Computed example of a mutant assay.
Amino acid sequence: MSQISDAVTYPTEHDDWVKTILIGGVLSAFGFLLLPLLPVYGYIVRVIRHTLEEDPRPPTFGDWEELVVDGAKAVVVGVVYMLVPGIVGAIAVGGSIVAIATGTRSATAAGLAGLAVGALLTVVLSLVFGYVAVAAVVAFADERRVGAAFDVGILKPVVLSGEYATAWALSIAVFLAAGVLVGVLNGIPILGAVVGAFVFFYAQVVAARLWAGGYTDARTRAGGLNSPDVGGSAV
């Protein structure tokens, strides 16, 4: 499949790709401090923009202020979209724990059932809102304004398209593969955890390439479908 093969090799299509992966991996390794993740997310936004602009080469790290600002904006977009799953999960888990804490048999049974249903609902909502959130981040990168991330007119044709859905599904497969690889590497003390940060950064770049490609294909198709009398004869 050309789409996935292009995305997998994309991070290496630059003379300074090793340096870029090293910087991204180191920043990701210190992600527990939170602040280092902002330029990483900013770089992902930059990857999206390069892809949307049809630049075959990945960007490099540089103009750190722009990276941090774009990364912060991307985080805000993601947090806003994930508020609903977070609130539903908190209510479901909190209510179930209260019911279980009463100690009665019926309340405990109801609490456990509620906990299971709440967890399942939270997972489903997280997938749905996460699916839209990714498209929203791409829209922000494309339009260079946060408002675009919440513009229904921009997002609707994208999230309902097969092109974007396919790209998103492929990105999930990439993250799963990265997770399996990191799991294997974790068998090597210390080294596994360090290398894992670089693997996940690489996977993020591959995913960003896929998201931007799916977004572009969806917008192009929607534009073609909305064009009046394309290929038709004039009366």
Rank of each mutant, 00 (worst) to 15 (best):
P39T: 05
L120R: 12
G147D: 13
V184T: 04
Q204D: 13
A148W: 00
Y43R: 01
V158F: 06
T216A: 15
T60H: 07
L127E: 02
L33H: 12
Y10T: 01
Q204P: 00
L35P: 11
I48L: 13
I172L: 14
D55G: 09
N226G: 10
G214Y: 03
L34V: 15
A177E: 11
A203I: 02
A169S: 14
V68H: 02
I188R: 07
V26D: 10
A116I: 15
P85T: 07
D142N: 07
K19R: 15
I91W: 10
V128Y: 12
Y43V: 00
S161A: 09
G95T: 11
D229F: 12
G89S: 13
V93Y: 07
Y43P: 00
L127T: 10
R57V: 10
Y10K: 04
V77P: 00
N186R: 14
L67W: 00
L125F: 12
W17R: 02
L120I: 15
A109F: 13
L125N: 11
V205Y: 03
A113F: 12
R209F: 06
A135G: 09
L127R: 08
R219I: 07
W17A: 08
K73G: 02
V93Q: 12
P11L: 05
L191Y: 13
A74Y: 02
F129W: 14
F129Y: 15
L191G: 01
V158P: 00
T108F: 10
R219P: 02
V68A: 06
P157I: 03
G231W: 12
G118N: 05
S28C: 09
A234R: 15
